[in-house]
């Protein structure tokens, strides 16, 4: 579980970085509500990034770093329950 998940998250990290700037709108000057479309994309993308980071922090935090990460990752449910314990404090 741990290794594919680690590689999966590396791909997600690169993907998030790669499309923060909407390269596919290069040269485009379309305005939506007075603001360039490419800026709307960026704002939405940053919101998505926060959501992805939140998900990562909840379920996969420690992957690739903590030496007990493997045993933890076998039961992500219990790990996330432990975290919400922290939230309630």
């Amino acid at each position: 579980m741990s290794r594919p998940a680690l590689w999966g998250w590396i791909v997600v990290a690169v993907g998030l970085s790669a499309l923060t700037i909407p390269w596919f709108l290069w040269g485009d000057a379309t305005l939506v509500a007075g603001i360039p479309l490419w800026l709307w994309w960026h704002v939405g993308w940053m919101g998505l990034a926060s959501l992805v980071f939140w998900l990562f922090a909840r379920r996969f935090w420690g992957i690739g770093i903590e030496s007990n990460g493997n045993s933890r990752d076998d039961s992500p449910g219990s790990a996330s329950r432990a975290d919400t314990g922290g939230e309630r404090r």
Binding site: L39, H42, M46, F53, A57, D83, G86
Partner: peptide, 26 residues
């Protein structure tokens, strides 16, 4: 102070950045 502090900061970070950069640079 704790791991929970790091996790929350991490998730809120991109939104906080875009909230300041957009008005300032526009």
């Amino acid at each position: 102070g704790s791991k929970t502090v790091l996790k929350r900061s991490f998730a809120l970070w991109p939104i906080l950045c875009v909230l300041l950069f957009v008005p300032s640079f526009l």
